[in-house]
Design a protein around this nucleic acid. Sequence first.
DNA 1: CCTTTGTGTAACTTCAAAGTTACATATATG
DNA 2: CATATATGTAACTTTGAAGTTACACAAAGG
Lengths: 112, 112
Amino acid sequence: MTALQFDSFQAIADPSRREILLMLAGDKKSINSIAEQFDISRPAISKHIKVLHQAGFITFEEKGRERYCILRQEGFDELKEWINFFDNFWKERLGKLEKLLEKNPDIAKKKK
Amino acid sequence: MTALQFDSFQAIADPSRREILLMLAGDKKSINSIAEQFDISRPAISKHIKVLHQAGFITFEEKGRERYCILRQEGFDELKEWINFFDNFWKERLGKLEKLLEKNPDIAKKKK
DNA sequence: CCTTTGTGTAACTTCAAAGTTACATATATG
DNA sequence: CATATATGTAACTTTGAAGTTACACAAAGG
């Protein structure tokens, strides 16, 4: 249903877009109220919002002529899983090292 | 000491670079052995490796004329913290909701 | 109804990223 | 030593991302 048309890694590569996400963690905000916080033009922000939406990071809540942007938890899933993969990699590696030290405690001793 | 000259968000925005990191989770690899796995040219891979290094994701182990790339755990820290921020945001929000329901159990009931 | 406000988007410019080829250099090997 | 191998990098091209301005349009408000 929510066909991702934009890579989430790509989406958060831009500092302005990361800033927008941070702003939305505070509260939902209209497009214009977001744009006010930036030096770049309103259409530029509009594009960033579009990207964030297409990447699944935000949803909209229409209110008259205003469009409020709301953070969307699932948007962060892909990244979280990616990080988790490497986290597990390190943990696993640490586990192996511990087992090794249990069996060969001598390794921990200085060579000389 | 390790002056980051490249943004880590930017570094993982490129699919090839993410792929390289995945490859290195298996084992350390020489630049050429990495390049072999890709369709793009060796110099292109060389550049990607440089970026990953400057962003702190990998270190090198020189072995004669070969240069082995090794995953570096700290490189992932910035990202992990970023994700954690939003994770805490959701958890906190959930906590607030639970407290609210404790005090006003009626909210959970259907309106009609 | 006219004007203001909030937003989307088309058309354009600029710039940097990602790729290429060509060349340089250092190490290994027969 | 001559050659093959592993790598770095300069110079260049192409492409797309990010910004701009200008315009369109729907909703609100007097």
